[in-house]
Write a protein that binds this DNA or RNA. Structure first.
Lengths: 370, 370
DNA sequence: TCCGATTTGTTCGTATGTATG
DNA sequence: GCATACATACGAACAAATCGG
């Protein structure tokens, strides 16, 4: 054990243990150690190298060799720095999510990263379970679609813990306001505005809007819906805004529309939907009432999911970049990881969030009001 | 990443993962590696050094460098006994795969397992990459849909290595014959038989069949197609069987059908398709030739994917359990894991493979031949 | 038991590349 | 732009352990 590199190693070790080298403090440079111990550079590097793999030191090219902060950082960092990215979405196999995931997966796998999927089913408990997994295992980064982004989030601590452990994350589709994270989102307010304006320009004035309000998207789209009315000088019945939450999506909107279409007198001539999924559901109600789309009622969806093209009536809807968004999210998270790992910077200071401009796709479900 | 020592490192890693270097087996000496890669001894030592600290190799002075036995490894089993299941499929976001994955994911997450997805895009290289990842990280079990199951599989070594490392796996939809693994598959021969018999019973005698033959499913369905003809005493033109491989799926079948429909005289009156995806493609050709389905031509799909219900003509097709299959696969793998971990048995001796009986779903794309 | 060939372990010297401040 | 510090790579030498004959 009296090899030269071992002597150097033990000497450095002592200084770490007795507190001469504090966490994140720079230790002697390689050339200094060469002089001190009268050994070659190679010997110094072997000594330092072992301390690095044992998790006592870290090196930064051009800057120096530093002491690791063992207080926060247990074994975890070392064990499996194996290029893992986690993706948390509300669903993994329905609606637009397969496309988003495909976009991300194909980009990430190009760079040797591998993807773990978690779905929350729009449920905070599942979200918590996913976050726990991610914190205990080792992930290099996380792409998150927030669950019920409009409500208070009981898992906020877990997100803060991600930051504390220096695991970068970004949010897609929406984000928790309290966290103010890097994100890729739609301009949902403008989306709702565009949906509504399209109908107004077609001459509709009695428009009913259905919005899911437990996520940010729904709230913003509703805001856009109101704004379009206001800016075009159209007054409207407050009853013409229907809000619902995830759990009610299969029941409440359907029942309310059924009622609205039953009362004669004040039947709406157009419908703005939170998304395509709801639009499809409401189409069933319209059919059940023997009304025709778009002849009797116009309807606008959101997201341009495959559903929009499945039905007899192809839906007018708002474009969602889906696989492109997945790819952008993947790119963004890899960029952050690069910066964070190479320079011990904090994730927040890298790059900027992006907001996607919504575009209307006009198909057959909307028509001039006569 | 293209440093010389990294190239050497990856090369050695490959040989460990594909089973060239078995546990406790001596790997090439440093001087051999110097010759092989034309690098200095220093470079070789750096490469080996990293693999040693990562726990893949150990060195013995005077004797050589040896491969670590990961199957009984206390540390690794311990560190991430984290309930991870990997799913490898040919695609993760198209066709019937989202449904299969959803079925598996929802079952596995109930039991606290978490799912990592890999897609091979029907490509052996990607399959290899996925298997390497799975062998490198620590997974409790793997659900695999084989890539090009009818062809010789160049990754057979990686599967054998899974067994050596005691990581249980099962295969779905098809399996590599050489491995004879536990599996959940369709009775594809019967499926092809049922497709064809349905048409024969409707009076069709000039039936053309399109089969993807780089996977087992296609070959078996073709076998069923032939058997139905034989058993019903119908002779047929060998030209009425069209085979294609994954890469040709968007071109060859389309071109051939176009030719067939152009020559008058011998136009087929019915089509048996490898799957719904192909059926949809062929519907386009039929439409292009101004023919009607089912009036002029009957067509049968396979898998009952969402596509079967999307088109103007709803497809007659064969049922595929999809999410049910995912769930069964998940259940099967968890059962195996339970047995393997509790009793140190080998995976092979647990439970039995299951074969699903195909059922015909009759919709609007087939009609009595007059 | 010793010898010699082989193999890994330690140490030196040198050179060039690349990131940091 | 420049000095500093780490990263990669080559060459050479001797030491120490192993293994077959």
């Amino acid at each position: 054990m009296e090899t030269k590199y071992n002597i150097v190693k033990q000497a450095i070790m002592s200084k770490i243990l007795d507190g001469t080298f504090r966490p994140h403090q720079k230790i002697y440079s390689e050339s200094e150690l060469m002089k001190q111990f009268e050994v070659s550079r190679h010997t110094v590097r072997v000594a330092i190298g072992e301390l690095v793999t044992q998790g006592w030191l870290y090196r930064e090219q051009g800057a120096g060799t530093f002491c690791v902060d063992r207080s926060i950082d247990e074994v975890s960092t070392n064990v499996s720095n194996q290029k893992n990215i986690a993706i948390i979405t509300t669903s993994i196999s329905d609606y637009i999510f397969p496309s988003i995931i495909r976009g991300a997966e194909s980009y990430l796998s190009q760079y040797g990263y591998h993807v773990s999927l978690f779905s929350t089913n729009n449920n905070h408990d599942s979200e918590q379970r996913a976050l726990k997994k991610i914190l205990t295992q080792r992930f290099d980064g996380v792409i998150i679609e927030p669950t019920k982004s409009a409500l208070f989030n009981p898992n906020i601590n877990y997100y803060l813990n991600l930051e504390r452990q220096n695991i970068p994350y970004i949010m897609i589709n929406a984000f928790y306001d309290e966290l103010d994270p890097l994100s890729i989102t739609m301009d949902d307010e403008k989306g709702g505005y565009v949906q509504t304006e399209h109908l107004i320009e077609l001459g509709h004035t009695n428009i009913i809007g259905f919005f899911k309000t437990d996520d940010i998207q729904g709230n913003k789209r509703m805001k856009g819906f109101l704004k379009a009315h206001r800016e075009h000088g159209i007054t409207f019945d407050p009853n013409n805004i229907v809000t619902y939450c995830s759990e009610e999506k299969a029941t409440k909107p359907v029942e309310i529309l059924r009622d609205k279409l039953t009362i004669d007198g004040d039947v709406p001539t157009a419908i703005v939907c939170y998304n395509d999924e709801l639009a499809i559901r409401l189409l069933d109600v319209i059919r059940e009432k023997n009304l025709q789309v778009p002849e009797d009622i116009s309807i606008v969806g959101f997201d341009d999911s495959f559903m929009a093209n499945v039905t007899e009536v192809k839906l007018t809807t708002i474009q969602h970049p889906k696989s492109k968004m997945g790819e952008s999210a993947a790119k963004m998270i890899l960029d952050i990881i690069k910066v964070v790992t190479s320079s011990h910077k904090k994730a927040r200071d890298t790059g900027a969030s992006s907001v996607i401009d919504p575009e209307l796709i006009i198909r057959d479900s909307t028509k001039q009001y006569l």
